[in-house]
Design a protein around this nucleic acid. Structure first.
Lengths: 207, 207
DNA sequence: GAGTGAACCGGACTGACAGTCCGGTTGTGC
DNA sequence: GCACAACCGGACTGTCAGTCCGGTTCACTC
């Protein structure tokens, strides 16, 4: 949406703004690769994006992609981290409803709704990220951050529950392929309501 | 466990017992392939099982594997269907707690516990199946069967909920990689309790 | 128990892809 | 303007899913 969303690699301090000592050509290529990846994800399905194609679309060699991101997994992790950067900042700041000033329940619902936003705009990325990470999905920094956040809120709201497990379940609602099916008809309202109802049942005032 | 569990391909009417017109050598190879797949899954991780290795371990050519099962996906689908056959039968019969004689809530909890049994004994298979199916996971006959069953029970127990969504969430607890992490310490009791608590919150007497 | 044809076998082959490597190039600090 | 470290890119490798077809084996008949 905003320029930070389309201008790959510019949204976060860590990912975007010129890194210490990074050469100009390196920074330029990094941005080109992220942008090309996103475009290919939007055009083709998440699974038809090979690194050869990414490199070609970005106008760089394959070696460059690997030097920048280490692996296919690393590329999608970096891209997801970039797209999730604003959310990351929002939950660390104070401003309600996402930030530390909000009430736990309000924060949780706002966070899940923000995830739905990300899913709505970057569904292919989420799907590609899951596939690329494979068994390491739960080790991905972005996922871990989300899980830690949700766990903490659940723990606060319902001390009796297995907060870590419940947090995984809430995040499971955003499985890329599942979301794609649930919203295949374009009805994101229903999905958002289902997620909110789920959260209500799990940590709401019930009991 | 039982002979039907170790003797791959013998557990179900559809998968095992000599199919109409199937030649003896074909049946023998089918069994050998399923058994070899399971052994490799147990030995190596779910992701180091290539079809070349399966074919070699089964003592057949690669072409045979593909003629039997169509694709990598088909192989793991067939193996999972085979391992889930007893559960499938149990929920279609009458005997409580799984069958139609049981109360809905009792049936649901028993079903989830039975899934935990399968997960405990065939975790690598579940993980391999998920990866192999990829975006088609939700189209897999076994998953669809489980989902239909859970959906129906949820609909009966809590008409107000989005039963299909809730059913997906309950089944999400059995994601292979997630289960592997949650039970990495060998404590399956905790996992089972968490799943039961989850079900209680979602469809229990609350409200 | 020999003959016959259809079903089946298996391994060589293809195409695609992730990841590596190194000779050549470019940017940056002095 | 110079020197060298950092960076570039495309050719190369190894692996894997899936295909293909000449040769073999089974089941059925007489």
């Amino acid at each position: 949406m905003s320029e930070a969303t389309t201008e790959a690699g510019e949204a976060t301090t860590e990912q975007g703004a010129a890194r210490r000592g990074e050469r100009a050509d390196a920074a330029r290529n990094r941005r080109a690769i992220l942008r090309a990846t996103e475009e290919l994800l939007a055009e083709c399905g998440a699974e038809h994006v090979s690194l050869d194609r990414v490199a070609a679309a970005a106008g760089v060699g394959k070696g460059t992609v690997f030097r920048r991101f280490g692996s296919r997994t690393g590329l999608f992790q970096a891209l997801l981290a970039d797209r999730a950067a604003r959310l990351r900042e929002a939950i660390d700041e104070e401003a309600a409803p996402l930030g530390t000033d909000g009430a736990p329940c309000e924060r949780l619902l706002a966070f899940l709704d923000a995830l739905a936003d990300i899913a709505e705009h970057h569904l292919s990325l989420i799907a590609a990220h899951e596939r690329a990470c494979g068994e390491d999905k739960f080790d991905d920094p972005t996922y871990r951050g989300w899980h830690a956040h949700v766990s903490a809120l659940v723990r606060e709201l319902r001390p009796g529950l297995d907060a870590e497990f419940v947090a995984h379940m809430l995040l499971a609602a955003f499985d890329g392929e599942l979301v794609r099916r649930l919203t295949a008809d374009g009805d994101w309202t229903r999905f958002r309501r289902s997620v909110r109802d789920l959260a209500d049942l799990l940590v709401g005032q019930g009991k």
